[in-house]
Design a protein around this nucleic acid. Sequence first.
DNA 1: GCGAATCTTCACGGTTTCTTAACGGCTCCT
DNA 2: AGGAGCCGTTAAGAAACCGTGAAGATTCGC
Lengths: 223, 223
Amino acid sequence: MTKVVVIDDEAAICRALRINLTARDYQVATAGDGASGLAAIARERPDVVILDLGLPDMDGTEVIKGVRGWSTTPIIVLSAREQEQAKVAALDAGADDYVTKPFGMDELLARLRAAVRRAVPSDEQPVISNDHLLIDVAARRVSASGNDVRLTPTEWQLLEILVRNRGRLVTQRQLLHDVWGPNYTTELNYLRVYMAQLRRKLEPDPARPRYLLTEPGMGYRFT
Amino acid sequence: MTKVVVIDDEAAICRALRINLTARDYQVATAGDGASGLAAIARERPDVVILDLGLPDMDGTEVIKGVRGWSTTPIIVLSAREQEQAKVAALDAGADDYVTKPFGMDELLARLRAAVRRAVPSDEQPVISNDHLLIDVAARRVSASGNDVRLTPTEWQLLEILVRNRGRLVTQRQLLHDVWGPNYTTELNYLRVYMAQLRRKLEPDPARPRYLLTEPGMGYRFT
DNA sequence: GCGAATCTTCACGGTTTCTTAACGGCTCCT
DNA sequence: AGGAGCCGTTAAGAAACCGTGAAGATTCGC
């Protein structure tokens, strides 16, 4: 059975969605603010999330980023008609779709079906482990030669993207877009600085990298 | 580079999209009706399709079904505000998203980025594999006789075009246009230099190519 | 508020990649 | 046989790119 988490501060909407979705054999959990919404997602591991952007306690994009750190669950955003800017920000933060309020239930259901259909069958949690390195993405732990390594938030985001795409080349544009946002896709400096820091912390010989490889002119690759 | 096919019967919209998308480094092809739209999708193999529902010759859902028969390319639907019913039908037919006319360019671009980003996992990119060669376009990996081969950005672009059109002749003009841009379509030198480099890196006997074949006076072909 | 950690920005030297030109071999045509 | 055009090969200078250290600016925790 498909599991849905609904995050909305309007109780009426939560109730309406719960009734409609339950009637169509979805399993529904609701939350009234961002913090409890994140908790619900972590607890329920839903197949899809419906998220209202106008939450009382935190910005909607913060919720999205919080989820995208460890999960690829589809997120459908609800927003008032005027928040054009917020919609764009939400999609760039990693939302999969949005519906403007007031919305037709038929439309929401169609989008829900589309989102679930698209979803990739849940992927395994990446854990890298070899003689020298141990990277546990879910637990946010990294150690090199047996010693725990502390990474800053930015370093971690960068490493996580590379690890999730291990073996594949990740382009500079994509890294910059996913870590710094859509307006920073030309700041190649940032990549150089942070790749150097990651290598200093992770590589046995930072000057001759074994894991964090450069593909000149294109991007980086974790192997 | 991301390739987009736009299908809309309003020439003004086609033109506006072409200009905006080209400026953002998308590669754009346009079609004015459903039939030529389907042909364009089959020919161009775009990364994403923008489809107007109000086409003169056939219903938009027919176009979607026609594509979904053999491809999972993301489809973003354009529709007038009133066609609520048609939107639902389009999403159920396999469309991935829709935007109501009149639309904001920012919103469309954000949805485009979201659609392309989502599509990557499910999109099966060509992988060439035989005794001697292994080419994984998605991961940007090439190996010859078991050894990993490093390619420069230009070498990659060239090889990728040939691989995507494997078996077919690709003209010199098209290669030059797609790799170096519209102002370089006479620099046949570039092709010779880079084909030689690719052969040196990929062919078992570079002087007698098995995969990267020359069609004198016309172009090259990957087999 | 204050100190520490983190992020942004800059400049320099070394390396890789791109561009360009020249030369010889080959095929086809006259 | 000779010439013209096309192709493959090589090499060298120019341009772009990368790694690095370090110095402000900003944020965060106390």
